[in-house]
Design a protein around this nucleic acid. Structure first.
Lengths: 163, 163
DNA sequence: GGTAATAGTCACCTGATGGAACAGTTAGTC
DNA sequence: GACTAACTGTTCCATCAGGTGACTATTACC
């Protein structure tokens, strides 16, 4: 009789690029969220604030399109920001249906702090790598993101239900 | 009078290693989940099956500890697997409180299919990279995972509420 | 002027998440 | 050998994000 075939260890998860990406991505995102919490915002608010900084006065719909989310989600995000005094819904000069979204000066201050936190988090997740390796890693990841159709700076989590 | 300081575009999210990791990690995990759906399981089931393959006969508590989750969660995961005929709760030979968890032959077949799907997904997310670059990427990611205390093959998502 | 489309909002429902508590069993202790 | 503490697996419940459909106000089309 033949022996029971020895388990023949298959390639472990920790050797797979997709697993490592998911593992590290979740890890760093989660840490970032925890570090951001004292500021009273979450990573998705941070992403919206970052975008607003460069695109002030846009309508909620325009912002939602740019970030790949549904307008309904934008309502909630802006409710959060507005209640924290970080954003304002003003009257849109050209379309009375729409709101023109603006940042407050308070938001700009908070953005600086949030960016510093992001820097910390990045530094920490990259601790094991020297300068040259970091550059290599970022270049590789950018090419992968581009090739897989991930728009620069747009996190797919925001538009989770988009499909 | 001084000009309004030009927006001085800050470093975009797409240049940050932590953002890229989160973006690509979420992307590939999400795609993997969608590809896995026809098999009737989710990524967390896949992770559990992978572990069970190497650690059959363990108790639910032992499995939960190994994967960094709470036993309560393990109950739900095993309910899922058992109802799909992928796992069995047998009597534990040494401890009548505990169950000894075993895979079915059906589970082994399904694991092969799931691994093939994981291979596809990995291949796709790595499309932009040649062989050498892939090896470099995996090596860098593994060092980062190790340095940040991420146990090999254990996805932090499973133990989301651990802290 | 009438109809369709759009911007933003709300109320609802469902599914995941976390906590407390339970019965059955084991292990240590006197 | 009885008693107490600890452990395994499970259920119940309260809570809360996420997704859906319908609704008002305004604009654009013809």
């Amino acid at each position: 009789m033949s022996d029971v075939p020895p388990p023949r260890p298959p390639r472990p998860l920790g050797d797979r690029a997709n697993f490592l990406l998911s593992q590290l991505g979740y890890y760093t995102a989660h840490r970032f969220a925890r570090r951001l919490a004292p500021l009273g915002i979450q990573p998705n608010h941070f992403g919206l604030l970052m975008h607003l900084e460069q695109a002030e006065g846009r309508s909620q719909q325009q912002l939602a399109d740019a970030l790949g989310i549904h307008r309904k989600v934008m309502v909630g995000l802006l409710d959060d920001l507005e209640s924290r005094g970080l954003a304002q819904r003003r009257r849109h000069p050209a379309d009375r249906r729409a709101h023109a979204i603006h940042l407050t000066s308070q938001a700009r201050d908070l953005l600086e702090q949030a960016r510093a936190i992001a820097d910390e988090e990045e530094e920490e997740v990259l601790t094991a790598l020297d300068e040259r390796e970091r550059a290599v890693l970022v270049a590789l990841l950018q090419r992968m993101a581009s090739q897989t159709g991930n728009p620069p700076g747009v996190h797919p989590r925001l538009g989770a239900t988009l499909a």
